[in-house]
Design a protein around this nucleic acid. Structure first.
Length: 461
RNA sequence: GGCCCCAUCGUCUAGUGGCCUAGGACACCACCCUCUCAAGGUGGAGACACGGGUUCGAAUCCCGUUGGGGCUGCCA
């Protein structure tokens, strides 16, 4: 890939402290879309400067989830833990330019001094001329009076008074660089043209700008801060309290293209008014400038609806293909060919397929006690309906139409319409009052098993 | 507390000064279809946070208030 001066280069820069979650996934998606629609480069960079909190296995989990979603990256993954020399050079440059000073203040001391007053660092060590020593942090010296302006593609200019920016730490006492520093150095070195990230990073952006000015003559990257994804209480989604892992959604039977489509319209909407777009349509229509300003609630109910819609729109072949892994290992789907389309119409998640077909494969059916008593035991007509059906089922043709006629007649005999008459049969055979169309199910189940289950039910009366 | 962001139906949004008696989608309710359950169809209820301006005219522009959120770590 050629690197011209005007090449669009974006990056997704997660810190590997957990599974990829939906908020990060949306950030990744928007970056990916922006790269794809501009013939740009999508870089993956793992921000693992904090040895205490990062774990190797997480970055594998993150790349796997990205891959599953279809958000392939062009460069990387780069790992910040492998780029310390680069940061060292940057740090030396800042020191040489007089942009920094060492600081030995502890959090306790600082709190004591600033007690009740302004939070943030008070500049105590600014002019103490401390020498480098193990355990001392290195701070960036915020000088000047000009306001720092973040020019945001989504929000316009955001102005920060320089006096409101503290002398922030850029290197820890253990000599590790801190997030802002490594972040800026990498963005600069990787020639990132657009920084598209969550709004929670907006307050640290002026610090990044200050560092950029001191470290590079290159033009600033463009910024775009995305609105947060929130829970029902309107708080930023959190790994701890909210169900946010992409992997969890994958494991509960959501389709990756649906998750991408849904994430895309959380904070942005297509001009043509459609709701669910495929990735290639998103690439065509997405517009970073038109991203909303306000936070959005991640609504699983709506996501589930879209998932069902997508499942229903699949060709039969695709649906069967997608079902693999979601049904029992030894379940022969050829046994239920006619039922498959009926299943497809009724599930909104792939995980719902197996429960719906379970009665076809499990030798023993379980009947919920309430269901049993309501539909059979406490139903005065159940016995006669079941007996009549059992009798007819011995000899009749075994196709859904005939079976329907039998149950219809059984109902007639006791003055019940088909809707009521079918209930005891359904429960006796499938164990539930709700499920796939009954007569197709019986046809697929076969004469022997059907009769056996009805006999079994009658024996309990 | 300080700094910053945000504000249209319950939710996601359309809307960029007249096309708005505010449109769509999910959810909800009713009816239709129907062997159960879904799906589908039809209809319904449901919002411009508040107060000032600007303007012939404001959901749309400005200010304030209120409310929500984010950040405020030698985390990212």
């Amino acid at each position: 890939m050629s690197t011209t001066e005007n090449q669009i280069r974006v990056r997704f820069a997660p810190s590997p402290t957990g599974f990829l979650h939906v908020g990060s996934a949306r950030t990744a998606l928007y970056n990916w879309l922006y790269a794809r629609q501009n013939a740009g480069v999508f870089v993956l960079r793992i921000e693992d400067t904090d040895k205490e909190r990062n774990r190797q296995e997480w970055d594998k989990a993150i790349t796997e989830s990205l891959e599953w979603l279809g958000l392939n990256f062009d460069e990387g993954p780069y790992r910040q833990s492998e780029r310390t020399e680069l940061y060292r050079n940057g740090i030396d440059q800042l020191i040489a330019q007089g942009n920094t000073y060492y600081c030995d203040c502890t959090r306790e001391e600082l709190e004591k001094r600033t007690e009740g007053k302004k939070p943030g660092y008070d500049g105590f060590c600014r002019d103490r001329g401390l020498e480098k020593k193990a355990g001392l942090a290195l701070r960036f010296r915020v000088d000047g009076t000009e306001p720092v302006v973040v020019q945001d593609i989504i929000r316009g200019d955001v102005v920060f008074e320089r006096s409101a920016i503290e002398d922030f730490v850029i290197v820890k006492g253990n000599d590790d660089p801190l997030f802002v520093l490594a972040n800026v150095i990498d963005d600069c070195e990787m020639r990132i043209s657009h920084i598209i990230r969550g709004e929670d990073l907006l307050p640290t952006t002026p610090k990044a700008l200050l560092l950029w000015e001191c470290l590079s003559n290159e033009p600033l990257p463009k910024f775009a801060h995305l609105p947060m994804l929130v829970n029902e209480k309107r708080q930023k989604l959190s790994k701890r309290r909210d169900p946010v892992a992409i992997e969890e959604y994958r494991n509960s039977g959501f389709l990756p293209e649906v998750i991408c489509g849904y994430l895309a319209i959380l904070g942005w909407s297509p001009k043509d008014g459609r709701e669910m777009l495929a990735l290639d349509e998103l690439i065509e229509q997405f517009s970073l400038e038109d991203v909303n300003h306000s936070p959005a609630f991640f609504d699983v109910v709506k996501l589930t609806h879209f998932n069902g819609e997508m499942i229903r729109s699949l060709s039969l072949e695709d649906f069967i293909e997608r079902s693999s892994g979601w049904v029992g290992d030894n379940w022969e789907l050829s046994k239920v060919t006619k039922l498959i389309p009926l299943v497809q119409e009724r599930v909104s998640k792939l995980s719902e397929i197996a429960p719906m077909l379970e009665f076809m494969y499990e030798p023993e059916i379980e009947v919920d006690p309430d269901t049993w008593s309501k539909a059979i035991e406490g139903n005065p007509n159940a016995k006669s309906i079941l007996q009549y059906c059992l009798e007819q089922f011995r000899e009749c043709d075994w196709d859904s139409e005939t079976l329907k006629e039998v149950v219809l007649t059984a109902g007639d005999k006791v003055g019940l319409k088909l809707g009521k008459a079918q209930a005891p049969v359904r429960v006796a055979v499938s164990g539930s009052t709700v499920g796939l169309p009954l007569f197709e199910s019986l046809e697929a189940l076969g004469r022997d098993v059907t009769s056996e289950r009805i006999t079994n039910a009658l024996s309990k009366l």
